[in-house]
Design a protein around this nucleic acid. Structure first.
Lengths: 184, 184
DNA sequence: CTGTACGTTCAGAAAATTCTAAACGTTCCA
DNA sequence: TGGAACGTTTAGAATTTTCTGAACGTACAG
């Protein structure tokens, strides 16, 4: 591996490691493929990055799933070959939809589940001051749901190619009561 | 801890764990505080979540840094108390700027460094077909730089409250040559 | 001062993740 | 029908991350 490639592989590996989406090794694999004019065999990738074939096999599959890498066939070889994708918009869409939005919905599902648990056992619990704490929780859950629903809708619009207005998200917070210790 | 709170804490912990920004425990801490009307002491959080004080101490600091939790003082106690923030827009800005954009710049810095290494050793390396591979790399690096610069600018605009046009980012890819194996 | 109540730091324990090499299943050629 | 060339699976090793409890520093009360 030449020096520029080495620098690129290391840097992209470091960036991937902190991305929360790819592992360091996946970043390195992508970087290596991205600077190569021709597809590389699994074995070649393993050799260049000094990793076992099995480890490359498992990590490269993730890259293919994100559409960051494409599996191709090469003329006279029956080895699988891989090349980097250059359609970054597609990749970004994929990550936004399958990772980021999925995560937002996880929160929305949790809120819904919590709200259900709250109504199933209505008004029994009281706090130290004798107030029913259910009402407070319901308000907070509603605020969280409103925010995450707005972001989810915004990201959805964005990946469809529509513009994403920050105001839409900000406005939703107008309904949220301020922090307890700051109330007038 | 009552049942709704338990469900919320678990769910938010799971969501945080896959977010790439917070740890599971940080998600759980935030969830616990978010459903409480009054600030909680470090010790109370540790007890509720069945973790050591030192672990809570370290993890809650991260939450304070993201502005997800606020440290407050409470009447007749010299313990630190913590309460959840409700200004999610602020938190989102913080994460976009200090996490997401920082990550984008990491890639841009890597590209710049690689380009520098490439010009410092000009035109020596040739590929199997006898072509200089530097030109190809330069093209690829340029495409990557263009895309990440566009996204970085877009996110910057967004956190300033301006609208984020997907077209801006998409257009940048028009300049990118298609994948090697798909060329006509 | 002295002692107690805190939060933080840190070394090592515990747990989770990542990686390897061997075993396995498939495909294709002789 | 072998058997060689692959990619994948998997059990365990290696590494990294997370967590704990003790040690430490600081502030405040008596």
């Amino acid at each position: 591996m030449d020096r520029p490639t080495g620098i690129f592989v290391d840097g992209m590996g470091a960036a991937a490691a902190t991305s929360g989406v790819l592992t360091q090794l996946q970043g390195r694999i992508f970087a290596l493929l991205y600077l190569h004019r021709h597809p590389l065999a699994l074995e070649e990738v393993a050799a260049e990055l000094e990793q076992s074939k099995s480890n490359i096999s498992v990590n490269i599959r993730g890259l293919v799933e994100w559409h960051l890498v494409r599996r191709t066939h090469v003329a006279g070889s029956r080895k699988d070959h891989y090349e980097a994708a250059t359609d970054f918009w597609r990749v970004m869409q994929e990550i936004m939809e399958r990772r980021f939005r999925w995560n937002l919905r996880q929160v929305l599902a949790t809120v819904a589940e919590t709200e259900r648990a709250l109504t199933e056992r209505p008004g029994r619990k009281q706090d130290a001051a004798g107030r029913v704490s259910g009402a407070f929780m319901t308000t907070r859950l509603g605020a969280l749901r409103a925010f995450f629903a707005a972001v989810d809708a915004g990201v959805g619009a964005f990946t469809q190619g529509q513009s994403f207005e920050p105001e839409t998200v900000k406005n939703v917070l107008r309904m949220v009561p301020p922090r307890t210790s700051e109330r007038s």
